[in-house]
Amino acid sequence: MRRMPPTKRRMPVALHRLPLGSPLQILLLACSFALAGYAGVRLLADDWFGVALWFVGAALLHDLVLVPLYTVADRAVIRGSDAVGRRAWTPYVRVPAVLSGLLLLVWFPLISGRVAERYRLGTGLSSDVFLGRWLLITAVLFGGSALLLVLRLRRATKLRPPADH
């Protein structure tokens, strides 16, 4: 309990004994909910279930799937570089992986080709190019990162005083 903020010591036993808290904050949030409600009934007018599913689902999918997924992936990278005894190499994998993953996340519909037909009809362009371009960017990111690592290692070797050998 050492690190806990003092307010948490006065925890409510049950909700019916919940203290009110700041009245100003309650007023502010009530105004916010009023506006959100006004827009919300319009948002939910057509397909309330689908929209609510998307709204809440987006938050849950992000917090309970995406975040754990990339956390686990990041830990695997760190553990991997620890296993070969080169923790300092972690960023050289992590940075290109993050950047490449980000591009894939944002442009997944185009890269995966799942909208190929509509895209071709809509724009007169072929979406076949996107997978190749993404792979190319990924290759450049990892290649550049590897090159940087090699250069830094070589410089470190040259700069190392003879006594270290």
Partner: peptide, 28 residues
């Protein structure tokens, strides 16, 4: 923008009303 219309309804009302719901919470 990627023409992937899998969201539940027409883009315009979803994005417009969704923006107001979000903005209400964002202001608070």
């Amino acid at each position: 923008i990627q023409l992937d219309y899998i969201f539940p309804g027409s883009f315009y009302p979803l994005h417009f009303y969704g923006a107001w719901v979000f903005f209400a919470a964002f202001l608070a």
